[in-house]
């Protein structure tokens, strides 16, 4: 499949009183058409910022984002407006991401209205969208507070689908939902991907969910990608010590699991003054002298499995 998105040396710094928050710091990756790239990491690692940068909800500090070969950063407002139809986002919190004063039908139809679709046609399209995401048509005139979390997230999905996009950033779309509802939404997202040929960037902190839905996974730590690989490969042959720690930390609901306890000490350092060299060296159990001095580059170890670590041969 051809590349849909190419990201090169993307950076986003947020100025604060104490300096700059290095939210995303020199990140490069590609997303192929029709695939799901999972972006995992803990709070503050820059995964959501990356998602927002990709659809230019926020402007990058530096770096390039190519969408179908065209540089998004250099586009003017009009060009970008056209592109908005192609890229959408589904947010984490289905409570704050939809307008409480608009009916469900209005919310889903809003993007269509912005792009000039007439009322009659709009209503029909919204009906079709609601059916597609499993919302009963009688909910058209209901308001968000009348809906539970799972249904609200379906509204968010229907709105994202309304303009028939090619690319959707899913920013923790199931994190706020109960497990039984979470699985319904995950299956819906997968179905929609198949029928509508969608490409996803799936941002999540939940490794089981990311593994389930992604073709490839990139692991982020403090604004950097530390490892990226085809999904199965990442789990079968986890190379970066941070990825290993992340994996070991996931509690697994099974009996008699003799797992190596691999518990990281300390917390994530401040992104305002990130550690020198490898950013993980302050918590890494295998840190060496070189790790605090030199930043390891993200290099391909074959089969599309890249890792940024001095220790990995």
């Amino acid at each position: 499949m051809p590349e849909l998105i190419v990201v090169e040396n993307l950076r986003k710094y947020f100025p604060v009183a104490a300096g700059n928050v290095h939210a995303v710091d020199d990140v490069s990756f590609t997303i192929d058409e029709g695939e799901t790239l999972g972006l995992v990491g803990e709070s503050g690692c820059g995964k959501s910022t990356t998602g927002r940068l990709l659809i230019r909800l926020i402007e990058p500090t530096s770096g390039r984002i190519l969408y179908r070969g065209r540089d998004m950063a250099s586009m003017d407002k009009q060009e970008l407006h056209g592109l908005r139809k192609e890229m959408q986002i589904i947010f984490q919190d289905p409570f704050s991401s939809i307008d409480p004063r608009k009916s469900i039908g209005e919310t889903i139809g809003k993007p269509l209205e912005i792009f000039g679709m007439g009322r009659k046609e709009r209503e029909e399209t919204v009906d079709a969208l609601m059916e597609k995401v499993g919302l009963s048509p009688r909910l058209y005139y209901k308001y968000p507070h009348e809906l539970d979390g799972g249904r609200r997230q379906r509204v968010g999905i229907a709105r994202a689908l309304s303009l028939s996009p090619s690319f959707i950033v899913c920013d923790e779309p199931v994190s706020a939902l109960d497990v039984s509802i979470q699985s319904q939404i995950l299956n819906l997202l997968q179905e929609l991907q198949e029928t509508m040929k969608l490409t996803y960037l799936f941002v999540s902190h939940d490794l089981s969910v990311v593994k389930h839905i992604s073709d490839r996974i990139a692991v982020m730590y403090l604004g950097k990608i530390v490892e990226s690989a085809p999904s199965l490969d990442l789990f079968r042959n986890t190379l970066h010590p941070y990825s290993q720690a992340l994996l070991a930390a996931v509690p697994i609901p099974k009996l008699n699991r003799k797992r190596e306890r691999f518990i990281l000490s300390g917390g994530v350092p401040s992104p305002i003054n990130p550690p020198t060299g490898c950013r993980f060296h302050t918590r890494c159990p295998w840190t060496m002298d070189i790790c605090s001095q030199q930043e390891p580059p993200l290099t391909d170890r074959g089969g599309g499995h890249s890792v940024a670590c001095h220790k990995v041969p």
């Binding site: 497990v179 039984s180 699985s183 319904q184 995950l186 593994k211 199965l232 994996l247 609901p253």
Partner: peptide
Amino acid sequence: LGLFRCIPDIEEESSTIHPIEGLM
């Protein structure tokens, strides 16, 4: 049983999840 079946299995090569249909 439904609760166990609706979480993706991180240890399986490919996992299918079976949601509990409907709502609370």
